[in-house]
């Protein structure tokens, strides 16, 4: 074996073979993931129709009733509000960073974004518990005449919005930076101010990219688990307003992993929840990629 290894040709052959194995594995990974989750949740399909699973709100694992609507709605609420908060912040911040900022400020803001992007989910959750939750129960909720402990859809959404800001912002900065500067120069020399240039030329040019970046952010938010789980309240109910507690899909999976073996089909149900997340995220990301690719051609 050792002799073989010293033979250059063999060495080359082994490393090439390894590369082929590795790349095949990576290419197959999404399919393995999807099929694996599908297979594991198939037990659920045999007795429930897909429509029932997705659109029923009856969640009674002990009698074999698995309606995911409550959890889907929980995810939709949290994600949607988080996007409402972070989308404008990201767009404005990206514009100022790429169009107006001086170099010394860039030296501050880039590390800030990097650190925000690198902070673990749990840390955001801890921050949510220390700051966001009390802030909602003592300041925001009374402002709207609502009463809450603070563990709510809004808390989840705020924490989530902060988490996806660096993610969306980085993509947006990249998109604005790839717009050729000559376009700005052209618009300016036609007598437009900087803001007019942004409004009529840059935003228009970047529009598909902006939509895509928000789409990626949305997909990312949809699957975020720990931080949201820690502040969102986790009550099996369809929230009626932002101060209600909710129960998003990822939280459902994370909270019930211990019990999943004790009730038949429960494991299958949790795998189905993971499958929903997987499909939603994949489809969303695929659509956004295609949007970008199509627009790149022009």
């Amino acid at each position: 074996m050792i002799v073989l290894f010293y033979n250059r040709k063999t060495k080359n052959r082994i490393s090439t073979a390894w590369m082929y194995i590795a790349i095949s594995f990576v290419v197959l990974l999404p399919f393995i993931l999807g099929l694996g989750l599908y297979f594991k949740s198939s037990l659920l399909f045999s007795e429930n129709s897909l429509g029932d699973l997705l659109f029923s709100k009856v969640w009674k694992p002990s009698i074999g009733k698995f309606g995911f609507l409550t959890f889907i709605m929980g995810s939709v609420w949290v994600t949607f509000i988080a996007m409402l908060i972070s989308a404008p912040i990201c767009i404005f911040a990206a514009l100022s960073i790429t169009q107006y900022s001086k170099k010394f400020y860039l030296k501050i803001i880039h590390p800030v974004i990097d650190i925000l992007a690198g902070l673990p989910s749990v840390v955001y959750g801890v921050w949510g518990i220390i700051v966001v939750v009390p802030f909602i129960s003592t300041v925001i909720a009374p402002l709207f005449g609502a009463q809450t402990m603070g563990y709510s859809i809004l808390a989840g959404a705020i924490v989530l919005s902060v988490m996806i800001i660096p993610f969306i912002l980085n993509i947006l900065i990249e998109i604005f930076r790839t717009i050729p500067i000559e376009l700005t120069e052209a618009s300016l020399s036609l007598g437009a101010t900087k803001w007019e240039t942004i409004k009529y030329v840059l935003l228009k040019k970047a529009l598909p990219g902006i939509i895509a970046s928000l789409g990626f952010g949305l997909a990312r938010a949809f699957g975020e688990t720990m931080a949201v789980l820690m502040v969102v309240g986790n009550m099996v109910q369809i929230p009626k307003n932002v101060f209600d507690a909710g129960y998003p899909l990822p939280a459902l999976i994370a909270n019930n992993y211990g019990e999943m073996l004790s009730i038949p089909k429960y494991e299958s149900a949790l795998m189905f929840a993971a499958l929903i997340l997987f499909v939603v995220v994949m489809v969303f990301n695929a659509l956004m990629r295609m949007l970008i690719v199509r627009y790149d051609k022009y």
Binding site: P30, L33, G223, L277, V281, N285
Partner: peptide
Amino acid sequence: FIRFLLDLIWGVPSIVYGAFGFGL
């Protein structure tokens, strides 16, 4: 195509890997 696939799984949430890992 490979980059496309990578970008897709890049976005898959970690809880999904967790669930898959458990199944595996």
